[in-house]
Design a binder for these strands. Sequence first.
DNA 1: GGAAAACTGTCAACTGGTTTACAATTGCTT
DNA 2: AAGCAATTGTAAACCAGTTGACAGTTTTCC
Lengths: 230, 230
Amino acid sequence: MTDAYTVLRHCPLLAGFPDVALHEAARHARVRSFQANQPIYEKGEPQSNLCVIAEGLVRISSVNAQGQEAVLIIFDRGTWFGDAVFSPGTGRVYGATAHEAAVLVEVPGPFFRDLLQRYPQSYPVVLDLISQRLWSAISMIEEDALRGTQARIGQRLLFLSQMQRGGKPEGGPVTVRLTREHIANMMGMTRQGVHRTLKAFEAQGLITLGYGRITVEDEAALREHLATLN
Amino acid sequence: MTDAYTVLRHCPLLAGFPDVALHEAARHARVRSFQANQPIYEKGEPQSNLCVIAEGLVRISSVNAQGQEAVLIIFDRGTWFGDAVFSPGTGRVYGATAHEAAVLVEVPGPFFRDLLQRYPQSYPVVLDLISQRLWSAISMIEEDALRGTQARIGQRLLFLSQMQRGGKPEGGPVTVRLTREHIANMMGMTRQGVHRTLKAFEAQGLITLGYGRITVEDEAALREHLATLN
DNA sequence: GGAAAACTGTCAACTGGTTTACAATTGCTT
DNA sequence: AAGCAATTGTAAACCAGTTGACAGTTTTCC
């Protein structure tokens, strides 16, 4: 389903807008497809589109001078991103890449900001959602500071599996399509270091490892295990 | 100066409001004083006041089950905080403590949210500032992932000295009033581990160490030094 | 179908930060 | 002014994670 209106209507960020507004936004939006690993935008680009994921996964990351990539987060369909949407004048702060084949609905930044002004009842929802992102970023900083690597890796797996599920209720196994190296880049660790912990989790029956994917067999059991350590 | 209106008027978050609105806010506000290390609110409290710092320093932190404290950030006068302001219904996500004697102007959450609705022109400023906080949180995650401990500690010192200066131009030495242990708690390290790096910085003439304080002698030189390592 | 590329598993040496322990200093309190 | 609590300095043993190196596996793409 790549109908722009439908995609926007299901995006939580836009939940506060009436239908008229979203139909208007859909008319101004542009639908673009990306292949796996194709860059969507690079750090520093001056654009400020709001991007909503209609299909696929998007990786937000930052590459330093030495070419090391820090994967900051991976967004799933239905979510929105676009660093500079709310700060006109600033360029993109991080880079976005299609993690797997993806389809995006892009609403131009200036148009979106204008739409917000015209439908101010939508602001509380937007503020609430940005606040939640701020908290989840801060809680990652907190975990980095307080918990050991095992707990941090496990927590990240839980986060990724929750994202994979979307909003569906917790139940059977959830498969996250990420390489060990991606996990390592998210954790600021090496592939080998992550490997050791994942193997330990697998030995305990909490996860199953595959080529380019990690399956969380039982989220509740993993969560419970993490509570015991560190 | 603990006149509520004046404090609110100088808070960047409220820059989008006309004077009338801020006078009204000042009338609904409550001014409270705290002694050093006195708790302002604890994690989980149901209140959602917006707090603006009229005087002093405020420490935002999280304490885990084992009693370890992660210092997330230290706010200076003129800045605002209050986790749940924009997400009614949520309790406080982190704890706030007066780091040194402080005076706060507290605007009740429900009143503030109502004021936003009545003066929607103020929303863009608020969104912009929250976005910036989100970025600075994310850039910390990024640094945790990509840079070594020396660079991370140095970067944090720069951040703290900038905060200490307020908006004033960079110039002479800036003294940050924090113990080595607080720094360690911000970095997720031990006091001894931090000590080694700080001593190295001191040996290079970049900083001076004192009892309960660290003086950044030359911010530009420190910044330049950090660029060379890791 | 076969070669190249990407990903994974594994191991030994190394190292930076932790742990543990104790002494010295500073500043506040009475 | 003495006494006590908080902060700081220091050093050795330890250890988790990195580095570097290589072989095996899975996938992709001609």
